[in-house]
Design a protein around this nucleic acid. Structure first.
Lengths: 161, 161
DNA sequence: CAACAAGCTCTAGTTAGCTTGAGCTCAAGC
DNA sequence: GCTTGAGCTCAAGCTAACTAGAGCTTGTTG
């Protein structure tokens, strides 16, 4: 089971896929368990991936870069054919969608930056007055670890400390 | 231990703090365990926070919005006085630093978007030519290949701030 | 034929940021 | 004097995306 001499060029075993895709074999098995990629097995139960899985893994990485969770990526990938490389049209749809998400995220960060800008001179940090603490851009809480600001319902009261 | 009649206005119990800050009491206790906020105790072991803790919590939320981890936020907060509200200068320093981080992040997203832009018209999905997919694939030849995606976010960290 | 590399499954651990729940105390009100 | 509500501690659980390790199989090679 070492070098893939007997495999058609269009197929690849997990170790080679991992090396070429730049992830670990464990990650690939994990992706497979999450149904992001698919394999067949040899008689000896060894995973065999179609070569274009390489592309799928690349798309997964791209999706993560965009800020999507694996679940969201899985949904996107579900629209792609499992048995061959995605067509140009497939990819165009996906990448335009993702581009829009990046654009949105950029816009959010711009408004966050503006808030910080405003705050620098201000320093009030008032939950009622300060734009930093009153974002109008309802945000997609992104990943674990980064909750978006929540609504501060009250101000600091009549007697600011 | 119900309504805070007997507390000075400058102090606040955890329940009220939670309500006014828009987080749960559990979260506040968690923040305290992480040394992001501090309390004294009554004879009955009840936490008493200085009122300006409200501001500290607001700053924590702002830091999260910027994309910092609680550890990074704790470092930033360590420069603020524990016993009173931060001065305007404190806040100016903090918010300018954070603004720079947001700017960096925006720049990163811009380059990501440019990659996607390039990819949309291209559709090649070529692992050799496409700037978005450019792992060390295909030219699988070892050697200093393209650094890619996965290290993209790596330098948004606390390293020296 | 034995060694060894590559694969396999399954379970558990990691980090971050909380959340949930059990079980207990304390002070006030009816 | 008992219920109620707010608090307390400690422990465990959760989600995401993996990582690590034990223990076993498979298949090629010297």
């Amino acid at each position: 089971m070492s070098s893939a001499q007997h495999l058609p060029r269009s197929q690849i075993r997990i170790g080679d896929l991992a090396r070429r895709a730049g992830v670990t074999v464990a990650t690939l098995r994990f992706y497979e368990s999450r149904e992001l990629i698919f394999s067949t097995r040899t008689s000896g139960n060894v995973r065999i991936y179609p070569l274009h899985t390489l592309r799928r893994v690349a798309i997964i990485a791209a999706g993560q870069r965009v800020g999507l969770t694996l679940t969201q990526i899985a949904e996107a990938l579900a629209d792609l054919p499992k048995d061959r490389a995605p067509s140009q049209q497939h990819w165009e749809e996906l990448s335009s969608k993702w581009k829009m998400l990046v654009d949105q995220r950029i816009a959010q960060l711009h408004s966050l930056r503006d808030s910080l800008d405003g705050c620098i001179g201000c320093g009030c940090l008032s939950t009622t007055k300060c734009s930093l603490f009153n974002p109008q851009d309802e945000a997609a809480a992104e990943g674990p670890g980064s909750r978006w600001i929540r609504n501060f319902d009250a101000d600091f009261g009549p007697h600011e400390s």
